[in-house]
Amino acid sequence: MQYVFNPERVCAKVFMVEVDEATRTIVKFDFQGGCPGNLQAINRLTRGMHIDDVIERFTDMPICSGSKVTSCPEQIRKGLIALREKLDSGETSRPAFGLNAFGGLK
């Protein structure tokens, strides 16, 4: 299942995560904007991890000096919490993923 998150107050504009619904493990993490090296590292490090493990590891991360209130890991954590709630509720809506997800961005 693929989900798109719009982070707030960070350089990245969109986070996209593909999750295996049966195991709740991350298959792929993708993004638009932000720091490519850091976010590609997050993709590689979180691939194969259970979403609950990522949520736990990203708790209490330092904030970015530019935003003063949040960070990409914190925004990913919030997105994964929302994803977990959708999975728990059995919600089946599937937002656009890939290039189509970027259509509304400027």
Rank of each mutant, 00 (worst) to 15 (best):
P95M: 10
Q2V: 09
I55W: 15
M61Q: 13
G79S: 06
V54C: 04
C11N: 10
I81C: 04
R84V: 00
L39A: 07
A82P: 03
V14D: 02
S93N: 12
G104V: 08
V69M: 11
L45Y: 05
V19A: 04
M49V: 00
L83V: 14
K106V: 14
M49L: 15
P95F: 11
R57S: 10
P73M: 03
K78P: 00
A96Y: 08
E8S: 13
L87Q: 10
K28N: 14
R94K: 12
D30L: 06
E91H: 11
F5Y: 11
C35V: 11
P7K: 01
Y3S: 06
G37Q: 05
N38T: 08
G34E: 04
P62E: 13
E8Y: 12
T59P: 00
T25P: 06
G34W: 01
S67A: 15
Q32T: 12
R84N: 12
M16I: 02
N100G: 10
P62W: 14
A82W: 00
M61N: 05
R47D: 00
F29S: 02
T59I: 11
S65K: 06
A96M: 11
P36E: 09
V69N: 11
I76W: 01
T23F: 06
A101P: 05
F58E: 00
Q40D: 09
K106L: 14
L80R: 03
S67Y: 08
E85H: 02
C35N: 07
D53G: 00
A22R: 14
T46D: 07
S89T: 11
T46R: 05
R9Y: 04
K78D: 07
C64A: 11
M16Q: 15
N100M: 08
K28A: 14
